[in-house]
Amino acid sequence: MNDSPRRRELTRLAAQLFVQEGFDRTTVRMLAQEMGIKSGSLFHHFRDKQEILCAVIEEGTQNALAIAREALEACAPTPEARLHAMARAHLETLLTDRNAHVVALYEWRRLDAESRAHLSHLRDAYEALWQEVVGDALEAGLIHGDKFLVSRFVLGALNWTVRWYDPEGSRTPEELARELIAMITPPSH
């Protein structure tokens, strides 16, 4: 399938509709109407609704992975700086690509087996970055616990912010990331 700017725009519109209506309640007719095209024209860009869902999650996960990698490259090489960079990057992803992130969180289970297999490497790569950063923080004694559980706990806390965080509110993503890391690390003496 093509990777045109139009297809990417249609993918973003689909993400918005999936967030508003849910994947199951979203019809092809609704998608076409939201996209400003005829239902038949939708199939010029996508085979079916399942492919649209896969494209939304793929684009969102690729963006999250790119933002995380850039954040790690730009930060100091200390475990604390890397942990903070990952938390901030995750929050940035939520703010810049919120709909795709919400769809990935809540509609992953709607993917068919082929789509899940296709996307698993991206999800695994993102989680591996977290495992690496958390592993380094554990090794340095910055945090304590099981690497898998700490990674899941932190990602869960960050993912839940899509439900309550207000970008127009009093805390910036930077401050929120700093607070989260402060909660899981012992105070400096």
Rank of each mutant, 00 (worst) to 15 (best):
Asp166Arg: 14
Arg171Asn: 01
Arg47Ala: 13
Glu114Thr: 15
Gln33Ser: 14
Leu94Asp: 01
Ala157Pro: 05
Leu91Val: 09
Gln62Ala: 11
Phe23Leu: 04
Asn159Arg: 12
Leu17Asn: 04
Gly36Glu: 09
Ala89Thr: 08
His44Lys: 04
Leu10Cys: 03
Leu149Tyr: 02
Asn63Met: 07
Gly141Lys: 06
Glu107His: 11
Glu107Gln: 15
Pro187Lys: 11
Arg29His: 15
Trp108Gln: 09
Ile184Glu: 00
Asp48Arg: 12
Leu65Gly: 00
Gln16His: 14
Glu168Arg: 15
Leu155Ala: 05
Gln131Lys: 07
Thr172Tyr: 04
Ala140Tyr: 10
Ala128Trp: 04
Ala140Asp: 07
Glu70Gly: 07
Asp124Trp: 04
Phe43Met: 01
Thr172Arg: 06
Val162Arg: 03
Cys75Ala: 05
Thr61Lys: 07
Ala55Gln: 07
Ser120Val: 10
Leu31Phe: 11
Leu72Glu: 11
His45Arg: 09
Val102Asn: 02
Asn159Tyr: 10
Leu119Glu: 05
Ala104Gly: 09
Ala64Asp: 04
Ile181Thr: 02
Cys75Asn: 00
Thr26Cys: 09
Trp164His: 10
Ala157Val: 15
Thr11Met: 06
Leu53Phe: 14
Phe148Gly: 01
Thr172His: 02
Arg116Gln: 15
Pro79Ser: 05
Ala117His: 12
Asp97Gln: 05
Pro187Ile: 09
Thr96Leu: 12
Thr93Trp: 06
Ala55Leu: 09
Thr78Gly: 02
Ala76Asn: 08
Leu42Ile: 11
Ser39Lys: 14
His144Thr: 13
Ser170Trp: 06
Ala89Trp: 03
Glu114Asn: 12
Phe148His: 08
Leu119Tyr: 09
Ala104Leu: 06
Phe18Gly: 03
Gly141Ile: 10
Leu17Phe: 03
Ala81Gly: 04
Gln131Ala: 13
Thr26Pro: 00
Leu72Gly: 02
His101Trp: 05
Leu149Thr: 06
Gln16Val: 13
Leu105Asp: 09
Leu17Met: 12
Asp24Cys: 00
Leu13Ser: 10
Glu34Phe: 00
Arg47Cys: 00
Ala74Ile: 01
Glu70Ile: 06
Ala66Ser: 05
Arg12Ile: 13
Glu127Phe: 11
Arg110Leu: 15
Arg116Gly: 13
Glu34Val: 04
Met1Trp: 03
His101Cys: 10
Glu51Val: 02
Val134Gln: 01
Ala137Gln: 08
Arg82Pro: 02
Gln20Leu: 12
Glu9His: 12
Phe23Tyr: 15
Gly135Thr: 04
Val103Arg: 05
Ser120Tyr: 15
Ala87Gln: 08
Glu179Trp: 04
Ser4Ile: 14
Asn159Val: 09
His90Ala: 11
Pro5Glu: 10
Arg123Gln: 14
Arg171Gln: 13
Lys147Gln: 15
Gly36Cys: 13
Leu53Tyr: 07
Lys38Val: 12
Tyr126Ile: 11
Arg88Glu: 15
Glu127Ala: 12
Ala55Phe: 03
Leu176Phe: 13
Thr11Ile: 08
Gly169Lys: 08
Leu42Gln: 01
Ile184His: 00
Ser41Val: 00
Leu119Ile: 04
Arg7His: 06
Val154Asp: 02
Ile67Leu: 13
Arg88Asp: 06
Gly169Trp: 04
Glu175Ile: 09
His45Met: 10
Trp130Pro: 07
Leu142Lys: 00
Ala15Val: 14
Glu139Tyr: 00
Glu174Tyr: 09
Met35Phe: 01
